[in-house]
């Protein structure tokens, strides 16, 4: 046996570990260091500084930026807004993505066309998407208002009503990038062997039982994956809000990234913006871990 193992590799290579092997990962490692670790470190450092682009460097201030954030009503509102938005959009991405994938998981031409259409909007840039939806939401002359008027109803004005603005933004976002979750779910569904469904059919499984006991458990990993990806993406909402409501009405749609952007690039207080970034970072980390943990514990029972 030992002889056979030795023969399968050139003599001298067995078990030898040299520093030169590290060269293989070096290009990635350097890039990772320069573009991920370094900015993260600088950002963390900045969040403890009084660094104002206009007023100049005011030295280290300890946790003062964070205590200021804690008392900043606009920041707290933006945190709540962002969490609210994530809670609106992520379940919609998972549920709707799954629904579309299950409905379109066949070989009919009709489904192929619909898959392309649903995925198609994902390639549009945020400017185009917001332009389209401003035309939809426009009071009196927008698509929504006109359609509602045609059947004798009056449509609410999404973008100017405080309680409807964030759901409106969530609808835009889901419409825009539902394609990716759908594709991920489709890929997962196609991994389930046909025989398993056939066995379930012979086992008298109803459609509902097949969905809940065969399909969903088989793609559980993908469900967790989609949820984590969407939480990370949606916590960073900015473009749609910036272009449609610009944070209004009455700060109802102002998300954390917009707060960071305004603190950093409008008010030029980089330390304060960096501190807000750290809060966002921790929120995203916590939400992702929570979801992975949920996925794990389900697997164990």
């Amino acid at each position: 046996m030992a002889e056979a193992a030795a023969l399968s590799r050139p003599a001298g290579v067995v078990g030898r570990r040299t520093w030169a092997n590290g060269l293989f990962v070096l290009p990635f490692f350097l890039t990772f260091l320069a573009l991920m670790v370094l900015p993260l470190g600088v950002g963390m450092w900045l969040s403890f500084q009084d660094y104002d682009m206009l007023g100049g460097y005011g030295g280290s201030v300890g946790f003062e930026n964070f205590t200021r954030l804690w008392e900043d009503k606009i920041f707290l509102r933006s945190v709540l807004n962002t969490v609210y938005f994530v809670c609106l959009s992520t379940p919609a991405f998972v549920a709707l993505g799954l629904f579309l994938a299950i409905s379109l998981n066949d070989t009919y031409r009709r489904s192929a066309v619909l898959r392309s259409i649903f995925f198609g909007s994902s390639v549009l840039s945020v400017t185009i998407v917001t332009l389209i939806w401003r035309l939809v939401y426009m009071p009196e002359r927008g698509l929504l208002a006109v359609s509602a008027g045609a059947v004798g109803l009056s449509s609410p004005s999404f973008m100017t009503t405080e309680s409807l603005a964030m759901p409106g933004i969530a609808i835009v976002t889901v419409w825009w990038i539902i394609g990716l979750p759908m594709m991920l779910f489709l890929a997962a569904l196609q991994q389930i062997p046909r025989e398993v469904y056939e066995a379930a059919a012979l086992d008298n499984a109803s459609r509902w039982t097949t969905l809940t006991r065969i399909t969903l458990p088989s793609i559980r990993r993908t469900i967790v994956l989609v949820a984590v990806i969407e939480v990370i993406l949606q916590f960073q909402i900015f473009g749609q809000v910036h272009l449609i409501t610009n944070g209004g009405p009455n700060n109802a749609t102002r998300p954390i990234v917009m707060f960071i952007y305004e603190a950093g690039f409008r008010d030029w207080s980089l330390g304060y913006a960096a501190a807000a970034s750290q809060v966002l970072f921790v929120l995203m980390l916590a939400a992702s871990f929570f979801q992975i943990w949920i996925g794990r514990s389900k697997q164990e029972d």
Binding site: P193, E195, V196, A199, A200, N204, T209, R213, I214, R220
Partner: peptide, 24 residues
């Protein structure tokens, strides 16, 4: 039916595999 690739339900225990059809 017994399939060529067995077609067992991968996320269920052997007991659940056996009882699935009877529960249904």
């Amino acid at each position: 039916m017994v399939f060529q690739n067995y077609a067992l339900y991968p996320h269920m225990s052997v007991r659940e595999n056996l009882s699935f059809g009877l529960k249904n």
